[in-house]
Simulated assay, not measured.
Amino acid sequence: RAGGAAPAVDRPPVAPARPRRRGRRFGVAATVVVALLLAWPIGLVLWADGRLEHVPALSEAADTPGTTYLLAGSDARGDGAVPEDGTIGARTDTIMLLHAPESGPAALISLPRDTYAEIPGHGANKLNAAFSWGGAPLLTATVEQLTGLTVDHYVEIGFGGITGVVDAVGGVELCLDRDVNEPLSGLVWTAGCHVADGPTALAFARMRYDDPEGDVGRAKRQQQLIAALSSALADPAVLRNPGRQVSLVRAGTDALAVSEGTGVVDLGRLALAFRRATGPEGITGTPPIADPDHRPGGVGSTVLLDPDATPGFWAGIRDGSLPPGPVGGLPG
């Protein structure tokens, strides 16, 4: 109709755009997935924290720079035997100090168990006698007096638990360049590198009497074992496998006792410091040794640290001023 209004046309209502609804659904699904991904590790950490056994271990010594971890491998003598130094009961064959300085290389230092040291309240004796006489607190105090470093975290590893942790990661590769058949530790080894299961790894770390370097050689193998475990724990195959993670947490927390206030997050930092120390930019070894067969009388054969070199050595570890690489070992 010329000049007239156009007739009204009925149009159906416009339906809401489906892509927007799909977008909302996708957003909700993504939120749920993210929540689940976050819930698993958080839940795993909380579960692990709740399983940790805490023991009194730390002193009230003034803090020293950096973070210092004291690692002790504990054993119990159930056979009633009394060793020549007169101590009985719980023993520790593995004593390591891991130090992460404020700057400079991290250091993993093995203290031979027979190190001749002044034990507060008991006089001079083998270092591991401190653990037998006073448990973790006396061992911590003795190590602090020996090194001048204040221990921030104490971690005690039950020897029996080592087997479970190694088996939980599917075994670790260890290397030794000679044949060994030592009944005391139970180690039977063919020269070369082999993937060791839990019992074999434990014997590898314990073996002493068939090692020409004695305690020093054992310290090197213990460091090798822990380095191999650290690498295995960082394996993506372990990190992506929830079942293996659960087995590992169960085995690890069954094997550990830690100082009060030390949690799973602290153990994570310890693992990172350990990897730094055992890597190419870290420091590993022992303190300077003057005599591996020092016999002061009454305590049998002991390891005498170099009284002239050790003060500067510990100061360098504390300050991070020592260059990376191996340190200590038997006197040349």
Rank of each mutant, 00 (worst) to 15 (best):
A2E: 05
G3W: 08
P7L: 10
A8F: 06
P12M: 09
A17N: 15
R20Y: 14
R20M: 12
R20W: 14
G23F: 11
V33N: 01
V33S: 03
L37G: 03
L37A: 14
L38V: 15
A39E: 01
W40M: 02
R51D: 12
E53P: 02
A62N: 13
D63L: 13
Y69P: 00
A81Y: 08
V82M: 04
G86S: 11
T92E: 11
I95S: 07
A100I: 02
E102R: 07
G104W: 04
G104V: 05
P105M: 03
A107S: 09
T115D: 11
A117C: 13
A124C: 10
A129G: 12
L139N: 06
V143G: 04
V143S: 07
L146N: 11
G148Q: 13
D167K: 00
A168M: 01
E173L: 06
C175S: 14
V180Y: 01
N181T: 01
G186M: 04
G192F: 08
C193D: 12
H194F: 12
A203E: 00
R206L: 01
M207P: 02
M207G: 01
S231R: 15
S231C: 07
A251G: 02
D254R: 11
G268V: 10
R269S: 12
L270R: 07
L270F: 15
F274H: 09
A277W: 09
G279V: 09
R295F: 03
D306N: 14
P311G: 03
P311C: 02
P311T: 05
F313H: 03
W314P: 06
G320D: 01
P324H: 10
G328W: 07
G329M: 02
